[in-house]
C-alpha cells in the first residue's frame, strides 16, 4: 500500500507578541523559528503504525516550501518514511486551493492508495488543504481521524474520527482516500538520528514553475496583536437594585455567586446529595 504523508514546516513566534513593542520585528522572517506541524507529526505516526500492522506499506513524505522545509523531510525520514519529495515552491496565505492543486498533481504522479495529512497547521490553521486535495482528486475524505485500522481481505479502512467531547464516530472508507489526522494520545515517535542525518541524500527535489496564480479576492488590512478573546458582553440582571447593578458592571459581572450557605443542621453529604439531585446530576432514589 502506498501512503503519501503531506507535511509542512510552521512558523513559531519567539517571545510574546502581546508584550512586544514592535510586532513587525517579531514577525520578521529572520526572527521566527520553524518547527514541524504537530498535526502532521501525528499523521506520520499514523502512517508508521499502518506500516507496523500490515506487511507492505511504502511511505512517501511530501513537503512544499523553500530550502528550510527540508528539515520536515529529515524528521519524516527519521520517523521511518521511505521516500522524500521536496517541492520547491512557495504559497502565501489565501492560495490554499492552488497549493492543494499542486499537491494533488504531485501525489497522483507519485501514485498512492492513501493520503494522510494533519487536520490543520499550527500557525495559520485554515484546515482546507486536506479536503482541497480530496476534492481536486475526486476521492473521499475523512477528517479528524484518531485511529486508522485496515480490515482484512482488502476491505475498506475503518477509521475512528473525533467528534467532540471525547466522543468518536466509526466510519468505513474505501481506498484511495484522503484522511486528515487529529492530534491524539498517540505521541509521535522520536526521529532516529542516523536516519535523520541520512535523509538529505534521499530527498528528491521537484522544481515547480510558479504560476502567477489566480487573484485572491482578499485584501490584507492589518496585522496586530490579538486582543484577549472578546467574551460575551455582560448585562446585569434587571431585578437588582441600581447600586448592585453598578457594582456588577464595575466588576465585569464577576460578582460573587450567591451561595447556598452551609447549614449546620444538614450534614455535608446530605447537602451534596440534595444539590446534585436538585440540579439533575443524580436521580433521586427515595
Amino acid at each position: 500500500m502506498k501512503v503519501v504523508v503531506l507535511i509542512k514546516m510552521t512558523t513559531v513566534i519567539r517571545g510574546n507578541p502581546n508584550r512586544a513593542e514592535n510586532l513587525e520585528a517579531i514577525l520578521d522572517p529572520g526572527n521566527v523559528a520553524l518547527d514541524v506541524n504537530s498535526y502532521d507529526l501525528a499523521a506520520l505516526e499514523e502512517a508508521q503504525r499502518l506500516k507496523e500492522s500490515i506487511d507492505y506499506v511504502h511511505i512517501t513524505a511530501v513537503t512544499v516550501g523553500p530550502e528550510s522545509a527540508v528539515k520536515a523531510l529529515q524528521i519524516a525520514h527519521g520517523m521511518g518514511a521511505d521516500e522524500l519529495i521536496w517541492v520547491d515552491a512557495q504559497y502565501e496565505g489565501g492560495r490554499e486551493m492552488e497549493l492543494a492543486g499542486l499537491l494533488a498533481e504531485v501525489v497522483s504522479k507519485q501514485g498512492f492508495d492513501l493520503v494522510l495529512c494533519g487536520l490543520k497547521s499550527d500557525d495559520v490553521g485554515t484546515g482546507l488543504v486536506g479536503i482541497g486535495v480530496a476534492e481536486i482528486l475526486g476521492i473521499p475524505a475523512v477528517t479528524r481521524s484518531v485511529k486508522i485500522e485496515i480490515l482484512p481481505d482488502g476491505g475498506p479502512l475503518q477509521i475512528h474520527r473525533h467528534v467532540g467531547k471525547g466522543n468518536r464516530e466509526v466510519v468505513h472508507c474505501p481506498l484511495p482516500a484522503v484522511i486528515t489526522v487529529e492530534r491524539s494520545r498517540r505521541m509521535p515517535r522520536y526521529p532516529g538520528v542516523a536516519r535523520y542525518l541520512a535523509a538529505r541524500k534521499k530527498i528528491i527535489r521537484y522544481a515547480v514553475e510558479q504560476q502567477p496564480g489566480t487573484q485572491v479576492s482578499l485584501r490584507h488590512v492589518e496585522t496586530k496583536k490579538a486582543q484577549p478573546r472578546p467574551k460575551k458582553i455582560f448585562t446585569p440582571d434587571d431585578n437588582l437594585s441600581a447600586a448592585d447593578r453598578m457594582k456588577m458592571i464595575m466588576t465585569g459581572g464577576m460578582a460573587r455567586k450567591k451561595k447556598k450557605k452551609a447549614q449546620s443542621v444538614v450534614s455535608g453529604s446530605e447537602q451534596l446529595y440534595n444539590f446534585l439531585v436538585k440540579n439533575g446530576f443524580l436521580k433521586n432514589k427515595a
Binding site: D122, H220, E222, T223
Partner: peptide, 11 residues
Amino acid sequence: VYSDTVAVKYA
C-alpha cells in the same frame, strides 16, 4: 494566527 497571539484582518 500563531496560537491566537496575532490577529490578521482581511477585507
